[in-house]
Write a protein that binds this DNA or RNA. Structure first.
Length: 462
RNA sequence: GGCGGCAUAGCCAAGGGGUAAGGCGACGGUCUGCAAAACCGUUAUCCGUCGGUUCGAAUCCGACUGCCGCCUCCA
């Protein structure tokens, strides 16, 4: 399996630290507000990564944090007149609901920095011991000049960072790029005891502390959005390696979700929350949309593209419905060699695509080829129930990775079943006026009827 | 100013030295009582522009143009 490593700036063959095991850390959101599509994208593409490792037989440990203590959670809680804990508890709950709708697997660990002060303090102590930390009036800082290799991830040298700094420089810091490890308490702020005084952790330190806590001092993959490369991940590397950890072996970053060619973000105010989008599109379609572009490429949000996802998914699910109708006839017939080859080709195409740095387009193209070929055989009446079952089995397997197909069928209310039966009767009598009337009535109620050789099929219209 | 990314049909998108996968949409056809679904066919002489290397480039090199991101909180 090849993955693009941001640090090496190229695709490399993935080698796990321990055979058939992989530890993954994903930087999660700061929980002070509703999640938007961009957060959804990051969560989904790395859910795809995790699920594909599982599909490939790896034992995966997946960690995604909730950032619950920083300027924004403190400020928002103050505005709303509630505690930081109340605020973050509410939004963690909302995020979890949204992510569940998107069929994102729960992380094995979902740590919060407020639960890990001991680990955070311990790593800062180690940074002092190793000469990377120093204390100023308002907090403890990391001395980036003391860490050789600073800038390797983002491709920037210390000098460039110095000259390019757009922020007002705190003259007391040894280097403008030095960042806070521990911020001393200001009036009204939540605070924890530490050897340097009461306060709270800086942003970057939580990920260094919690990743090592759950995945070990050296682990396989660290992921996040491209906006985290600098300074967040650069600083994490400096801290963790400065503390003597091996830290992450591979760095993966997802591209942005754009809207009108601009990054969707809180600060630009051009975002759609997941909740809003769910009002207009099915969660499966939203997942499929966010999944359907390569994870490192920019993806444009638009009504047209969401609708596109909805349409494509409908084609998949119609296909599954057709297969289900055939398997309903019982487990009979052979699985012919031709069908075995079709499935095998699709499987190889699917795996070949995802093996190549999660090339989802390649993977989906092979599924499209399978659907066309099998639909063609169904039209010809040559697909046995056993064959249909094996195609469904294949789709179920890959759906463990994609998580977008629907296999379940709901039961219709009896009155609707009766209308469908009545329509079958009157059609046999060639009373098409009544038949069309029934079809229109049901359509108004969201039921689409399709007449096939073997009877009438119903579907939900949306 | 520094660092990085992107530019392929109406739209989404793969490919990345040997002559353009796949999907959505559209149009024509088969099927159907009519539809729908499905299938078949059509839909890029060409891959931002200009040069160069090569027998051969969308693919490599150079320049240019446009767009985006990071350098400040951000998935």
């Amino acid at each position: 399996m090849k993955l693009y490593d941001t640090l090496q700036k190229k695709k490399v063959a993935f080698q796990p630290i321990r055979k058939q095991e992989v530890g993954i850390y994903l930087c999660g959101p700061t929980v002070y507000d509703y999640g938007h599509l961009g957060h959804g994208r990051s969560a989904i593409v790395f859910d795809l990564l995790r699920r594909y490792f599982i599909y490939r037989g790896y034992r995966v440990t997946f960690v995604r944090n909730w950032t619950d203590i920083d300027d924004k959670t403190i400020e928002r809680a103050r505005q709303e007149g509630i505690t930081v804990e109340e605020l973050t508890g509410k939004f963690i709950h909302i995020y979890r609901e949204d992510y569940a709708k998107l069929n994102i697997l729960e992380p094995d660990y979902a740590p919060k920095p407020t639960d890990h002060m001991a680990e955070i303090i311990m790593i800062i102590e180690r940074l002092f011991e190793n000469g990377h930390a120093y204390t100023l009036e308002d907090g403890v800082y990391f001395d980036i000049a003391s860490f050789k290799g600073y800038g390797a991830l983002s491709g920037q040298s210390l000098d460039e960072l110095r000259s390019g700094a757009r922020i007002e420089v705190d003259e007391s810091k040894r280097n403008p790029g030095d960042f806070a490890l521990w911020k001393f308490q200001k009036p009204g702020e939540p605070a924890w005891d530490s050897p340097w005084g009461r306060g709270r952790p800086g942003w970057h330190i939580e990920c260094s502390a919690m990743s090592s806590r759950y995945l070990g001092e050296e682990f396989d993959i660290h992921c996040g959005g491209q906006d985290l490369i600098f300074p967040h991940h650069e600083d994490e590397i400096a801290q963790s390696r400065g503390a003597g950890y091996g830290f992450a072996r591979y760095w993966l970053h997802n591209g942005f979700l754009n809207i009108n060619d601009e990054k969707m973000s809180k600060s630009l105010g051009n975002f759609f929350t997941l909740r809003d989008v769910f009002k207009r599109y099915t969660p499966h379609a939203v997942r499929f949309f966010l999944l359907s572009a390569h994870y490192r490429a920019p993806l444009s949000f638009s009504e047209e593209n969401l609708q596109h996802a909805e349409n494509t998914l409908k084609r998949y699910n119609d296909f599954i419905l057709r297969l289900t109708e055939i398997t309903g006839k019982g487990p009979t017939g052979e699985v012919g060699e031709e069908m075995q080859d079709l499935i095998e080709n699709a499987k190889q195409g699917f795996e070949g695509g995802l093996d190549d740095d999660l090339n989802i387009s390649k993977a989906l193209a092979s599924i499209a080829d399978l659907i066309r070929a099998v639909n063609c055989s169904i039209d010809g009446g040559s697909v046995t129930p056993s064959e249909a079952a094996s195609v469904i089995g294949f789709l179920e397997n890959i759906n463990e990775v994609l998580g977008v197909f629907s296999f379940e069928r709901e039961m219709l209310p009896e009155e609707i079943e009766e209308l469908i039966e009545e329509r079958t009767r009157v059609r046999a009598e060639r009373n098409f006026a009544r038949a069309d009337e029934i079809r229109d009535t049901l359509l108004e109620r969201g039921i689409v009827l399709e007449d096939t050789r073997d009877g009438t099929r119903w579907k939900r219209s949306s």
